[in-house]
Design a protein around this nucleic acid. Sequence first.
DNA 1: CTGTTAGCGCATTCAT
DNA 2: ATGAATGCGCTAACAG
Lengths: 332, 332
Amino acid sequence: MAALAGVSVATVSYVMNGRMSDRIPEATKGRVLSAARQLGYSPNRSARSLRRRKTEQVCLVVDSIGVPSNDQLARALHARADEVGYGVVTMVVDSPDRAEKTVDLLHQRLVDGAVVAPSINRQVSDEALAGLARGGLPLVVMSNTAIPAGFDVVRAPEAQACDEALDHLYSSGCRRVAYVGHQAELTDAAVRNRSERLNAYLAARERHGAEADDSLIVEGADGRVAAYQSTRRLLARPDRPDAVFTASGRAGVSALWAVRDEGLAVPDNIAVVGCGNLPESLITQPPLSTVGAAAADFTDVSTLLFERLLATEPLPVREITTPWVFTNRGSS
Amino acid sequence: MAALAGVSVATVSYVMNGRMSDRIPEATKGRVLSAARQLGYSPNRSARSLRRRKTEQVCLVVDSIGVPSNDQLARALHARADEVGYGVVTMVVDSPDRAEKTVDLLHQRLVDGAVVAPSINRQVSDEALAGLARGGLPLVVMSNTAIPAGFDVVRAPEAQACDEALDHLYSSGCRRVAYVGHQAELTDAAVRNRSERLNAYLAARERHGAEADDSLIVEGADGRVAAYQSTRRLLARPDRPDAVFTASGRAGVSALWAVRDEGLAVPDNIAVVGCGNLPESLITQPPLSTVGAAAADFTDVSTLLFERLLATEPLPVREITTPWVFTNRGSS
DNA sequence: CTGTTAGCGCATTCAT
DNA sequence: ATGAATGCGCTAACAG
């Protein structure tokens, strides 16, 4: 390459990177560029990263594919990354194995920074995160439980809004509220204990003196089809519920359909509330009542990461909180 | 690191990689490992990639976030990658700018191979792909138009199944079939020409002697909300359509709901057909008729990539075809 | 204006 | 069983 253009490797590097652009004659530049095109030459990323001591990539770690709020976050992160010349790679961590592998990769500096965005079941442990931060990796973690240890934390407290929604249901006369949950929170004890949604549900049931019928707690929040089927099944029971509280927004929409397909009215026969603020909540009939972040805005998260990434001196740990709110749109 | 353990860097490399595991005494191993833990040492990925001349990562290039079939593909690729010890990074290319950047990164060997999976509007040009293949990058491209040039191609011909569906609609007496399309295929002339779905629609309209009313061609296939609103708007017109053909599966589902919310019956008043085989198609009322791949199986694609990646000698170009089929489930 | 030089951190011979 | 030496491909000082 350098040979073909008749220049030194340094010069090649300069023109490929647009450095010293005013000190290199157009003629030389042209020769280098055309030689590069001819050979299909492109500087090797690994070598450059090694030398520059940065990869110019950030990582988005999600725990599940196809979650709308993750998509939103991905969009925001991409936008911000574009502005500062970074790339975004996303990694899916939906098993302990993958979690371990991903943490390793982060340790190995596959990327310059990461945002860890669990939807419901974060596979990456707090200790692992602390370890990464200790290694100097810029990190922002979305979590309501993690205590900051060298990384920024973005919280979205769910309990109060859930309480409000459930209080509303019981106060409206509902006695049998069903809970459509995520698979993990219903089977994995650790997750179950951490689930604010499920805890809020259980607490409200007790608070309002409703019968503790655990058969009203079913899976389905992980997908639209599962939620639909779970709800249909609930409604077909002789002792059917009079309200459905779903742990995801997609499930809320599906539940609403299920109720209508069963020939029942929302909210008169069955009330429905979902967690999360899908845009779809506005176009269902009736519009879906939800608990969730007031606005699905992940600009903050992205900003946090890149501030930490581009900072020249160590930044203090930051923590931002965007509480959930209950929005009664008519389905409850 | 090597110093702390009192060994040479070579020995560190050996134990970190589990090489020569039988020729290194447990004692030494232990010392190295504990020193590593103590220092939080982890071998640098860039350096390793540079030396080994491979990154052990593959890339999934998609053109849009939140497309269910891409999610399916991602799952399949992850599964296959896990088996052979590779990682998957996914890159979103939804603008010409990002396309250019991504192609650069691939040229620079950010990864060892890639599958390029456009949903409707591939931003990466055929020439760019050929260039990558010429550089020796293992590549599999999902495309109905690309001619193989050093990469494998996976095709999913749409036309015939679309014809069949549209013939069915017109033969059932529909005269005003609406088309809910993707934004890109309606505004970008190049995409428009390539869109088999839109072409099939236009051809069928003419073939059956239906009025050429282009106001029945609307946007909305890119998202659930947009599709719902577009359809509601269509149905509110005095000259409302008697059938809706949507360019995506999500749009099909939304259209179905729009029809029902408008107080009309499916398929008696309005027939609905969607492109793509969402699982949800089975749980709508009535189930959604679709054109799309018979099974959403991306094992083949993943296999193709890793075969090429792990092959020791150059592989011939392969081409696999999984044609679309029309499945009448009741909404048409 | 451009060439020379010296690593970046690691994996791999080849010695011992 | 392990250490010393070499170079992967590139960038950044520093010469010239």
